[in-house]
Design a protein around this nucleic acid. Structure first.
Lengths: 244, 244
DNA sequence: GAGTGGTCTAGACCACCAA
DNA sequence: TGGTGGTCTAGACCACTCA
């Protein structure tokens, strides 16, 4: 277990361990929801002390990449289990009522990537993407009009049927069907007035103020995998943010 | 340095240490920007090992309550120094241009707290508050119309002159003049149309979509100290959020 | 060179969980 | 009962800062 001062270190050991564990996750060595080896095992595997592995796992846990459960083990985080029905959705009802969201798929086509979206997804402009439009309804009333764009290369075989069968839980679908797990996301919010088409779809007057949420979601290793634009009605909901 | 197993522990030791340090911060034992005692000193003071103090400080650092600087020491976080001109402001220009914000104070009155604001600030409805209205301009054009409400009891002596002299850096003023440091905030965002008065003040047509940001800011110990409502023009800016 | 935080280790005991 | 993560300690050495 002696590694100190044997090789020149450019990075703290625990950072290197963290990278190694992340690589195993990317390689799919441990599936979402499965347990990763215990701290002692990993320490032995990498030839470091348990405390060093612990610090690496601490960071992964802080980033929601991994979940610790005392007495049981450490598990690869998953969308499937937990209550995480709608990961990343920060919209909450003002009266605090529970989410009763229905999902209505409007379209799902294979098209060429528009330039700005391609840039956000770090793919070539014009390459094939899957373009999904859907409506989320709250208590039967339209709440969010979503447009979701996925690089076709990584999301092979995604189609209407598949989406329908997951009833709107896109992230659960990505994980279960394709093994793609989103780790973090960035959102850009603006306020805008509903244009003609949007107003029609949402059943609103033209010009009604909407909250526009543009989201890029990233998988392991900061790779962008999904682009989304949501137009939200905020008369009964608001977007909740915690600042630190 | 032996404390283990001597007294029944209901909380991890490092949590207790964290609480003790926080209490010293609340009591003002160390001013913002000042160094707190070294890890070894604190370990000696509290009768625990340096590692335990370290873990307590780690959490305080993660919460931006304290800042570590290798080789120098650990310092109480401050708004005054750093580049943190506008703490908590998540609005960024779409073209990435630098913030050139001007501040224009519209009014500053002492009034009775409206019920919802009083609730958010956890004070009695109708108790005295300071009600500030101001305009933030970006490159000379109106960008944000702010209304800021502060409990008068804690913010004694706040007036136009004082606010003017800090040129819009409210958090810097709170800290410097009153020793009140905000640690975190919660924001609720909605989209709405500008009403007559707002439209006039911002120089817009009535009904122009605006991003409404309601913010409650908290000081040490999760005590709410400021309520704010910002109405923002988002044609050239967007609100940036990071989700994990 | 002395002092600070940053990393790493090795070993102890605790709290929780399952078979 | 044995294995897991959670806490705590004591001591080592490294990297940085400043006088």
């Amino acid at each position: 277990m002696k590694t100190t001062s044997s090789s020149p270190r450019f990075q703290p050991l625990y950072q290197q361990i963290k990278t190694l564990i992340t690589q195993s996750l990317i390689a799919g060595e441990w599936a979402p929801g499965a347990a990763i080896p215990s701290e002692m095992e990993l320490a032995a595997r990498y030839g470091v002390s348990q405390g060093t592995v612990r610090k690496a796992i601490d960071e992964l846990a802080a980033e929601n990449i991994v979940m610790r459960r005392q007495g049981k083990g450490t598990f690869v985080a998953t969308h499937s289990e937990d209550m995480v029905k709608l990961r990343f959705l920060r919209l909450v009802a003002m009266d605090g009522s529970k989410e009763l969201l229905d999902n209505q798929l409007l379209s799902c086509e294979r098209v060429k990537a528009p330039a700005p979206t391609a840039a956000a997804l770090q793919i070539k402009s014009g390459s094939a993407v899957i373009d999904i439009r859907r409506l989320l309804l709250f208590n039967g009333k339209p709440l969010i009009l979503d447009r979701i764009i996925l690089p076709a290369a990584a999301f092979k075989g995604v189609n209407d049927k598949q989406i329908q069968s997951y009833n709107g839980s896109m992230y659960r679908m990505y994980e279960t069907e394709l093994g793609i797990r989103m780790v973090r996301a960035e959102e850009k919010l603006t306020a805008l007035g509903a244009d003609g088409e949007v107003a029609r779809t949402l059943g609103l007057k033209q010009g009604t103020p909407l909250l526009s949420i543009e989201r890029v979601s990233y998988t392991y290793g900061d790779k962008p995998m999904e682009w989304r634009l949501g137009l939200c009605l905020t008369d009964r909901h608001h977007y909740l943010a915690h600042l630190e």
